[in-house]
Simulated scan of single mutants.
Amino acid sequence: MKKYEYKLLTISAFHLNKRDFQAELEEKFRQWGEEGWELVKMEPVNGGTWIFWGRTSKFLTVFKREKI
């Protein structure tokens, strides 16, 4: 039976608008792909503060790879 390990990453929606952050994130995702990590889920998370109420304030990403 296959076994997997998981990696969770929370990304601020605010930071996604920054060009430098996007390039850094793309590089990190590329690196993890080379290491065998697969992005299996990306889910928006609504904020709970009065500023972000009802808006997506961050994203939860889930990566997995088979244990060797």
Rank of each mutant, 00 (worst) to 15 (best):
M1C: 06
K2L: 00
K3I: 03
E5I: 00
Y6D: 05
K7N: 07
K7T: 03
L8G: 11
L8D: 00
L9Y: 03
L9F: 14
T10K: 14
S12E: 02
S12N: 05
S12H: 07
S12W: 04
A13F: 04
F14R: 15
F14D: 09
H15Q: 15
L16P: 11
N17Q: 04
K18C: 12
R19N: 11
F21R: 02
F21K: 00
E24F: 14
E24A: 10
L25I: 05
L25G: 05
L25C: 10
E26R: 13
E27Q: 10
E27W: 08
K28M: 12
Q31E: 14
Q31C: 14
W32D: 04
E34N: 12
W37P: 00
E38C: 08
V40G: 01
K41Y: 01
K41S: 11
K41I: 03
M42H: 12
E43Q: 13
P44S: 02
V45R: 15
V45S: 07
N46H: 15
G47D: 00
G48W: 14
G48M: 09
W50I: 10
W50M: 12
W53M: 09
G54T: 02
R55V: 01
S57D: 01
S57C: 07
T61V: 08
V62E: 08
V62N: 06
K64D: 01
K64N: 02
R65T: 07
E66L: 15
I68Y: 15
I68A: 13
